[in-house]
């Protein structure tokens, strides 16, 4: 994939880049020529991705920072600028693991809420603020927020996750209007990806997997790099320069409303 170096010479920071969709985005962007800053909470979480990028001839550094910390993310953005001379693309992908747990709305506690909100919403605001001066300077800046169709249809499983992802959809629309005059495009990506935990679960429950896959018109879940990562590369490329404020569902047709 990424046969063309559509992001050549541009620098991207990706939160939650140590595994799953974040890893897929990082690998795809590096293959497309971008300098990549892998934001992870623990350095060892980023080492394997760093090695993969290096093995493919790409350029990357690790920025250890909590995506919910303004001070730490400011430092991470600073590392990007110091390492590669600027910042053109900011991707907020990090999420709290509790987002996958079923919850009854009436039983949600402040702790439940805070754990997810600090990363999903707090992280989005923080990365936007930290990256803004550099995205503005870039004159072809991109801010990408990983969303979910659950924010549109309000899944029953986890109301906190749905609410926060719904909020992210609003964040994208509002920020796109605000940052348009600065030549910064703002995109949402709503993926359905086969991550490692999902693969493990489905390997143990093939009947559930088969039933679930029938929901996808394309008959499969997306691959983090080949499907989700390439979609992020696409929206950040100059070919999509006139698109902003949209959330692209990269979900094999799962949600079509």
């Amino acid at each position: 994939m990424s046969h063309f170096k559509t992001l050549q010479g541009r620098t991207a920071i990706i939160t939650g880049a140590g595994a799953g969709i974040g890893e897929g985005i990082a690998l795809a962007m590096a293959a497309a020529g971008a300098n990549v800053v892998l934001n992870v909470r623990r350095r060892e979480a980023g080492e394997a991705v760093l090695a993969k990028i290096a093995a493919e001839g790409g350029r990357a550094v690790i920025a250890v920072a909590d995506a919910a910390s303004m001070a730490q993310m400011t430092a991470a953005v600073r590392l990007a600028v110091d390492s590669f001379g600027g910042l053109d693309i900011a991707v907020h992908n990090a999420n709290n693991h509790a987002s996958a747990h079923p919850m009854a709305l009436e039983a949600i506690t402040d702790a439940d809420w805070q754990a997810q909100a600090a990363v999903a919403h707090g992280g989005a605001f923080i990365l936007a603020e930290a990256a803004y001066p550099y995205l503005q300077k870039s004159q072809r800046g991109c801010y990408v927020l990983l969303c979910s169709a659950q924010g549109l249809h309000g899944a029953a499983m986890n109301p906190v996750y749905s609410a926060l992802k719904g909020g992210n959809l609003g964040f994208i629309k509002a920020l796109a209007r605000e940052w348009g005059p600065d030549c910064i495009n703002v995109h949402g990506i709503a993926p359905a990806a086969m991550t490692e935990p999902a693969e493990v679960f489905f390997s143990q429950h093939p009947d559930i997997r088969d039933q679930f896959m029938t929901k996808f018109p394309l008959g499969r879940m997306g691959q983090p790099r080949e499907d989700i990562g390439e979609a992020v590369v696409a929206v950040c490329s100059n070919r999509y320069a006139y698109v902003t404020g949209q959330t692209v569902r990269v979900d094999g047709g799962l949600f079509t409303a």
């Binding site: 919403h121 605001f125 309000g154 749905s162 609003g170 964040f171 629309k173 509002a174 209007r177």
Partner: peptide
């Protein structure tokens, strides 16, 4: 969406999704 009202729009769309859940 609305320029200069990012927090309000974020909260409002979050509330709307919470309603659906």
């Amino acid at each position: 969406g609305a320029s200069n009202l990012v927090p309000l729009v974020t909260a409002t769309e979050g509330q709307r999704a919470l309603v659906k859940s």
